[in-house]
Simulated scan of single mutants.
Amino acid sequence: MNAQKGFTLIELMIVIAIIGILAAIALPAYQNYIKRAAYTEVTSAIAPIKTAVDTCFAIEKDLAKCDTPGEIGETMPTGLTGKALKSISIAEGGAITATPNDYKGIKTAETCVLSPVKETSGAGQAAADTGRLIWTYSGACVNNGYVKN
């Protein structure tokens, strides 16, 4: 008697079910990875502005003197069409806001704010200004997991 070769219908259905489950898990994870990778363009564009604010603060010792492009000696970068970065602005107190374009799943409303706070050592009346800034992210970039503090 000749033995038949090949797979049974149930074996093929099990393989298809396994592939379907793996795709259902992998596809959202991949899409989130693509968004985070595209958002790195936005966060990396903040770096030179942050450095300029740090430098200005080290010289001036006052964030109020480091909250315009002219005061920090930088021009605000703007993105190109089809890229992740739309614009960067600096606000009172040195807070830097980055706005992305609608790009690879990122939405324009998913802004990122990087805010400086003067670092101090000690507590109460003995607290002394260290001359450094501590930076914290806030906004949709943190809520969506694009950056971490």
Rank of each mutant, 00 (worst) to 15 (best):
Q4I: 15
Q4S: 15
F7D: 07
L9S: 03
L9E: 08
I10N: 11
I19V: 12
G20E: 00
G20W: 08
L22S: 02
A24S: 08
A24T: 03
L27C: 06
L27T: 10
L27Q: 07
Q31D: 10
Q31R: 13
I34C: 01
R36Y: 04
A38Q: 06
V42A: 08
S44H: 13
A47I: 14
A47G: 14
A52Q: 02
V53M: 03
C56P: 07
F57H: 00
I59E: 11
I59D: 11
D62G: 05
L63P: 04
A64E: 15
A64P: 13
T68Y: 01
E71C: 00
I72W: 03
E74M: 15
E74I: 13
T81M: 01
A84N: 09
I88Y: 07
S89P: 08
I90Q: 04
I90C: 06
G94M: 07
A95N: 11
T97I: 08
P100H: 10
K104F: 03
K104V: 06
T108S: 15
A109N: 14
T111I: 14
C112A: 10
K118L: 08
G122P: 13
G124C: 01
Q125H: 12
Q125F: 14
A127Y: 11
D129C: 05
R132Y: 10
L133G: 00
W135Q: 03
Y137T: 00
S138Q: 11
G139N: 03
A140S: 15
V142A: 10
N143Q: 15
N144Q: 12
N144F: 01
G145Y: 05
